[in-house]
């Protein structure tokens, strides 16, 4: 079974950690799910870079988007209960967790 990667990114796009996160996701491609929270939502302002990664799902935290005046592009899921989704995913069998 292919390795499934759950990525939680809380750093802005220019940070070294965000670059490393994106690079790891590129390796996993369709097996990567990206959760953007905190300053990580600023990565949506460089959405073309995220789209190039072709992650299966990109989810962003609604409160963090609103606080920062960032709008989610089409294709980004903005649930009411972001952390519930995240915890469910983190707890699911066979997933590897990467937090940045």
């Amino acid at each position: 079974m292919d390795k499934r990667g759950i990525f939680l990114l809380t750093k802005p796009p220019q940070s070294d950690r965000a670059k490393l996160c994106i690079h790891l996701m590129e390796r996993l491609g369709k097996n990567a799910t990206l959760y953007l929270a905190g300053d990580g939502v600023f990565n949506l302002l460089e959405f073309d870079l995220l789209q190039a990664v072709q992650a299966k799902i990109i989810m962003a935290c609604k409160e963090d988007l609103e606080a920062r005046g960032v709008h989610a592009e089409e294709g980004v899921i903005v649930p009411e209960n972001f952390y519930e989704h995240l915890v469910k995913d983190l707890a699911s069998e066979g997933s590897q967790i990467y937090t940045f």
């Binding site: 390795k3 950690r17 690079h23 790891l24 390796r27 996993l28 937090t99």
Partner: peptide
């Protein structure tokens, strides 16, 4: 290099920062 560095991260059971 970058590739080996990334491979080592993905190969580990756990990544801690």
């Amino acid at each position: 290099d970058e590739d080996i560095f990334v491979e080592q991260i993905l190969a580990a059971s756990c990544l801690i920062l």
